[in-house]
């Protein structure tokens, strides 16, 4: 994909990122940070792709290390966020 298209996507994404979290209560800062943290674990996709293409032994080691780290980030991130939010469940029920 050419540079200008990627730049366009980048700039539009910046605005969406600003917009979606602009009104959030302090109560949710921690889960939101944790959830965003899990989302950047999608670097796993990149790790899989580069590892699958590599031809050198060192490249394979680096790639597999990246896959492990990215999986920890992504899987662990979503699980811990869910655990945090689970605790809000009863409270939300009581509120209604």
């Amino acid at each position: 994909m050419d540079g200008i298209t990627l730049l366009t996507i980048f700039v539009l994404s910046v605005f969406i990122g600003f917009e979606v979290v602009s009104k959030v209560s302090t109560t949710l800062h921690t889960p939101l940070m944790s959830g965003a943290n899990a989302i950047h674990g999608v670097i796993l996709v990149g790790a899989i792709v580069v590892t699958g293409r590599t031809t050198s032994g060192l490249g394979l080691v680096m790639g597999l290390l990246a896959v492990v780290l990215a999986t920890v980030n992504m899987v662990g991130g979503f699980v811990v966020t869910d655990r945090m939010l689970e605790m809000f469940k009863g409270r939300q029920g009581g509120r209604r």
């Binding site: 994909m1 990627l6 996507i9 980048f10 994404s13 910046v14 605005f15 969406i16 990122g17 600003f18 979606v20 979290v21 602009s22 959030v24 800062h29 939101l32 940070m33 965003a36 943290n37 989302i39 950047h40 999608v42 670097i43 996709v45 990149g46 792709v49």
Partner: peptide
């Protein structure tokens, strides 16, 4: 990879605001 670009940018932008 557009997905990495979008996801990373979303986190970067929302993380800055946060």
């Amino acid at each position: 990879n557009t997905l990495l670009l979008v996801a990373g940018t979303l986190v970067g932008a929302s993380g800055t605001i946060l």
